[in-house]
């Protein structure tokens, strides 16, 4: 629309300059060549994405179907249903689910607390930046944080032992095993919830609260009848994102647990390093396949819920 009036009005003024690159005024003449050049402009990125995203993903997902000699096999995929591998999937599943639920509830509480704060105020900005650090870039650093906190000589461990005579490791050190992942994971799940759920809460219009109040509704009816239903898809969407985040997280777990493969990403690690998990080559591919299957289901559900959420954010 703006195409038609701006160039038309100006084309009479500088007669020399404009007709030379006439493609935007009159669509017909210059268009095809410009288009070809533009398509050419897309190729570097397309090539890059093909080489470093599409190709590795394709390799990761297809190696499972080949044996070490290069022949087609379903053995690796069948191994996914080996009780040992299934166990790691189950552990991955419950640790992700548990930390996602706790993270979602606590994170939503933080979002609620931030509701009245000015979006560009110092409080919001500090909390959002800190959340972003912990949620997305923590990785190995979070493992150290928890070793310093509840490691054998950690601040809290020592304090509980000396002040209250309470030994959290009376039954053995669990920080470097599966249960040890719970607290660090919650530590990055809550901030992730704050980041992903806050926009939905920002989308709540003050008019709705006003309408509720004018109609004689209480705080409780507002949250139960208005904000609750509107926020539900966003909440469950964020919950799924948290689940996916914990399910695919590797760095924190790898830094804490150096021995054993209690969760799927660690199982992939040992498959990659030793190539002999259950005596099979290309096992990493099979595990990657299983992981991607779970991720695709979760992320599809997430994007469906996300679509319902954005409907209210306009």
């Amino acid at each position: 629309m703006t195409l038609t009036d701006t160039p038309g009005a100006l084309s009479t003024e500088p007669p020399g300059a404009v007709p030379a690159r006439g493609q935007s005024q009159r669509r017909r003449p210059g268009r095809p060549r410009g288009r070809a050049a533009s398509i050419l402009g897309l190729t570097p990125f397309a090539f890059y994405v093909l080489a470093f995203l599409a190709l590795p993903t394709a390799i990761a997902l297809t190696t499972a179907f080949f044996d070490s000699a290069g022949g087609f096999t379903l053995d690796n995929v069948a191994t996914l249903f080996d009780p040992l591998i299934l166990d790691t999937f189950v552990s991955s599943f419950w640790i992700s689910a548990l930390t996602a639920v706790i993270g979602a509830v606590v994170g939503a509480l933080v979002c609620y607390a931030l509701l009245g704060a000015r979006p560009d105020g110092a409080l919001r900005m500090m909390i959002e930046s800190a959340s972003s650090v912990l949620a997305q870039f923590g990785g190995v650093m979070l493992a150290f944080a928890f070793i310093a906190t509840i490691g054998v000589q950690g601040l809290i461990t020592v304090m509980l032992r000396s002040q209250f005579g309470l030994d959290i490791y009376a039954d053995g050190v669990w920080l470097y095993a599966l249960p040890g992942l719970i607290l660090p994971y919650i530590y990055f799940q809550v901030p992730l919830m704050v980041i992903t759920f806050m926009p939905a809460l920002d989308g709540l219009k003050p008019q709705w609260a006003e309408a509720n109040a004018t109609l004689g509704g209480s705080r409780f009816t507002y949250w139960r009848r208005i904000a609750g239903p509107i926020l539900a898809p966003a909440f469950f969407g964020s919950l799924l994102l948290l689940f996916a985040n914990a399910f695919s997280g590797y760095a924190t777990a790898a830094a804490l647990i150096s021995q054993g493969s209690q969760i799927v990403p660690l199982q992939i690690r040992s498959a990659l390093i030793s190539e002999t998990v259950l005596g099979r080559s290309n096992m990493a591919g099979a595990l990657a396949l299983g992981m991607i299957a779970v991720m695709i289901v979760v992320m599809t559900a997430y994007s469906i819920l996300q679509k319902r959420t954005t409907r209210w954010q306009r």
Binding site: I59, L61, L287
Partner: peptide, 27 residues
């Protein structure tokens, strides 16, 4: 193509690093 580009750029969230690295090793 905006939608397509957006979709491509979001893929790395669904394909976590630990999966990508399996395919990156041969690359």
């Amino acid at each position: 193509l905006r939608r397509v580009l957006e979709f491509i750029c979001i893929i790395p969230i669904t394909v976590p690093a630990i999966v990508l690295v399996v395919g990156l090793a041969p690359v």
